[in-house]
């Protein structure tokens, strides 16, 4: 069986991270498996973890009254899920639900925060990686808002 550190090494999020850092981080992690339909995170509950998805499909959802769960995005092998553990009040803003059997590594947020505080260099390195993903998700969200495939367009802003 592969160690947590070996598993982290295979994941794109940790590409290029020195082995010593990976070892340090792997101390906060554990393997976990979610079965189809199982919630990985629930909106407004404590966000104690950061998930590294090794395999499987995860839906990021919110609940709409009189509609039910609304999926905003799906995450897949090689993605990560969760940054709410980084900032107070450390609570999830969305639901995450396994859509099939999901194998992931669950990293303890408190443990990670502590290691980052103790080693600001590692903290900055991780923060850069998170910032990149946050920026990508923001850009994707903007593109989603553009509704590019729709035939309806907002009227031209200014016609002279």
């Amino acid at each position: 069986m592969k160690s947590i550190e070996q598993l982290l090494q295979q994941h794109p999020f940790f590409h290029g991270l020195p082995a010593t850092d990976r070892q340090l981080i792997s101390g906060c992690g554990e393997n976990c498996v979610y079965s189809s339909g199982e919630y990985i995170a629930r909106e407004n509950t404590p966000a104690d973890f950061f998930f590294v998805i090794r395999e499987g499909r995860v839906a990021v959802e919110t609940y709409m009254p009189s509609h039910g769960a609304l999926c905003l995005q799906t995450l897949h092998d090689g993605d990560i899920f969760g940054w709410s553990w980084l900032f107070p009040p450390y609570r999830w803003t969305f639901d995450a639900r396994a859509l099939e059997k999901v194998r992931a590594i669950r990293l303890d947020g408190k443990c990670l925060r502590q290691k980052c505080e103790e080693d600001p260099r590692l903290g900055f390195e991780l923060m850069k990686r998170f910032a990149k993903i946050v920026a990508e998700r923001l850009q994707a969200t903007r593109l989603q808002l553009l509704d590019v495939y729709s035939t309806e367009r907002p009227p031209p802003a200014e016609v002279r």
């Binding site: 999926c71 897949h76 990508e136 994707a140």
Partner: peptide, 20 residues
Amino acid sequence: DHAETEWPGQIGVITKPLGA
């Protein structure tokens, strides 16, 4: 861009899987 989770493909904009 939008779907119920029953949809077996990905949900999200095309740039994400393309980027991955």
